[in-house]
């Protein structure tokens, strides 16, 4: 049962998103085309100044391989920089809590995580990272990883629009223009809005406050590695504590929060991420945060239409994304509104009403309820954001399967900034190839012939992430260090591991957080999945861009398969579902599907 509130929230969300995405698309097309933007001449002067000091020229064209090499070296240097700052933070300024240097394996994982736009966090921000690390290393990479994704999308779109060109653009120009014209100004406005709503932005030391009512509680004892201690019978060892004071973490939160959402990064300043009141203070900030995740991915659909000279093509891609999003969001809203059979057996009222949102409220904020929590979960995993306002690990089995599937589709349902667009265009190439096989014509897309080389590269790009996810999961569940991190035995423990690798390889960053993943084993294995899930996909996509740019544009004829109508939208949706889900059906059957059957068979 889905409540009317959920449906209204979803409808209003999509309507406001569409209204904002249209002007954003016009703006992005100008940024991607390299044309001057009226009224922003002062930014153009800054842009030219940056090229001068960098020794590059805006007009210097790059082949796809030069573009790829620049992108890879830039991002590898970013990883090294973030690693170094974490390992030296104790001796660096802006560390009022005197937080220790981050351990080597955690620093490695985090550095790869933020450079790959994944923002998987094995650590808790307020107990691990100094303000300098958060601002200089992590927030900096939030901008650069987002700009990298958008740059690749621009390069691929321009390749479709190009006529017999050797160049796909200039990486430094794409990176600079995206950061300067899009990410920085929108983030600045967004951060000020967040502060106006109650998000904090300061360099204060943490505040100790006295509780009005001391709290006595029991908690599990952990060993030095953070793993739960167990007694001779295998039961968890617990201790009873009384808290009279609470430490309130401070910091420059709003400036990181804005780009965290806008750049589909998702790595929270605090461990509780957007469930924390200093990151996401009100229902209004929550709605705006949800909008900001999809703003650039949706805007890029309209930018695609403008840059290839046929706005209907952008609508078709947006239509396919929206169909997939609404279908899967409806499923998670339904699943989370269900009464939990274990609680129903105890006679607990789980019906939606005037005083409660009902449904499965474990791991959710009462201030957000089922509707906003489930919608946020769908948005954050459809895009490669990974910010959370509820604990996905506590979702119902089918409710938790939706975020899992949205990631496993390859993060193309709106997807990450840039990465959603280039991922969906790769699926579109596959769709026209399949259609070409069916009708016996050489496939074409957006005026370019799709031939053997493009299909080889498309195959690599599509198969990289399932290979990393399934191989990584298999290794983890076979080895003791992998199974040691599971919080639950059986099917749900498997789901936790599958979720971790799906999240890492698809650069999402959210987790079934019961998994204790801040160990050398998971830090290393997930870093491999994150790097290659990002860059081993970008390389063949840039190769496709290079090949397409060199081709002539073919005029539309009576025999050309139209790629702007509902038939193509259906074909594209079918291709994404068939290719995306079929890779994972056996794994999903062992995880969330078994959990669902076990839960409702009792």
């Amino acid at each position: 049962m889905i409540t009317m509130q959920s449906l209204i929230l979803l409808a209003v969300y999509l309507a406001v998103l569409l209204a904002l995405a249209w002007p954003m698309g016009i703006y992005l097309a100008r940024v991607g085309d390299g044309t001057a933007i009226r009224g922003l001449g002062w930014l153009r002067r800054i842009e030219d100044f940056l090229y001068r000091i960098a020794g590059t020229s805006a007009s210097a064209p790059m082949t796809w391989k030069t573009y790829a090499l620049a992108l890879l070296v830039f991002n590898a240097l970013g990883v090294l920089f973030v690693y170094a700052v974490q390992r030296l933070q104790f001796w660096l300024p802006l560390n009022p809590q005197a937080l220790a240097n981050v351990s080597p394996d955690s620093a490695f994982n985090t550095a790869v995580s933020f450079a790959s736009n994944t923002n998987w966090q094995g650590y808790g921000g307020e107990s691990t990272m100094s303000y300098l690390t958060q601002m200089l290393a992590l927030t900096g990479q939030n901008f650069f990883s987002a700009a990298t994704g958008i740059a690749v999308a621009f390069a691929l779109i321009r390749a479709f629009a190009a006529r017999s060109a050797n160049s796909i653009g200039n990486f430094w120009v794409d990176l600079t223009r995206t950061t300067l014209y899009v990410l920085l100004p929108v983030s600045a406005v967004f951060a000020v809005f967040l502060v106006s709503q109650g998000a904090i932005q300061n360099f204060s030391a943490y505040k100790d406050v006295t509780l009005l009512d001391p709290v006595t509680y029991t908690q599990a004892k952990n060993d030095a590695d953070g793993q739960p201690l167990k007694d001779a019978k295998g039961e968890p060892v617990t201790e009873t504590l009384t808290a009279k004071t609470q430490t309130i973490a401070m910091g420059p939160v709003a400036s990181q929060e804005a780009i965290k959402m806008l750049g589909t990064n998702g790595g929270g300043f605090f461990n509780a991420n957007s469930a924390h009141a200093y990151e996401n203070p009100t229902a209004l900030t929550n709605f705006v945060q949800m909008l900001s995740i999809f703003l650039i991915p949706a805007g890029l659909c309209f930018a695609l239409g403008r840059m290839v000279g046929d706005i209907r093509q952008g609508w078709a891609v947006l239509g396919a994304m929206t169909v997939l999003f609404v279908g899967l969001t409806t499923l998670v809203l339904f699943a989370e509104q269900q009464a939990h059979p274990g609680l129903a057996a105890l006679g607990i009222d789980q019906a939606a009403g005037a005083l409660q949102s009902g449904g499965n409220m474990e791991g959710k904020e009462t201030r957000f309820g089922i509707s906003a929590s489930a919608l946020f979960a769908a948005i954050t995993t459809a895009a490669s954001c990974g910010a959370v306002i509820s604990m996905h690990d506590s979702f119902m089995p089918l409710g938790g399967m939706v975020p899992l599937v949205l990631m496993q589709l390859g993060e193309v349902v709106f997807g990450g900034v840039g990465s959603g667009m280039y991922g969906m265009l790769i699926f579109a190439i596959l769709a026209v190839f399949i259609a070409g096989l069916m009708i016996g014509r050489t496939p074409e897309y957006l005026g370019k012939k799709i031939q053997s080389f493009e299909m080889k590269m498309t195959s690599i790009a599509i198969l990289v992430t399932p290979t990393l996810v399934l191989a990584g999961t298999a290794i983890a569940v076979m080895l003791d260090p992998g199974t040691a991190g599971m919080a639950n035995p059986g099917a749900h423990g498997f789901s936790e591991v599958l979720y971790a690798f799906s999240s890492a390889a698809n650069n999402n960053g959210s987790a079934f957080a019961g998994l204790s993943a801040n160990t050398p084993f998971y830090n290393t294995l997930l870093a491999i999945a994150m790097w290659f899930g990002r860059f081993a996909m970008i390389v063949p996509i840039l190769a496709v861009a290079g090949s397409l740019a060199a081709k002539k544009r073919i005029d539309v004829t009576a025999g050309t398969m139209p790629t702007h109508g509902p038939l193509f939208v259906a074909l594209l949706v079918g291709t994404v579902l068939l290719v995306g889900v079929l890779n994972y059906v056996p794994a999903l059957a062992l995880g969330p599907v078994v959990e669902h059957l076990q839960l409702f068979a009792r």
Binding site: L69, I528, F535
Partner: peptide
């Protein structure tokens, strides 16, 4: 320990560059 992870990062870069080289060689095939 730091040297291990720094080498790993450089290895990531080199493997991905090798992938680019491999993709390019596929393109040059007749």
């Amino acid at each position: 320990m730091d040297i291990v992870f720094v080498v790993a990062i450089v290895a990531f870069l080199l493997v991905t560059c090798a992938l680019a080289e491999g993709c390019d060689s596929l393109r040059r095939e007749p």
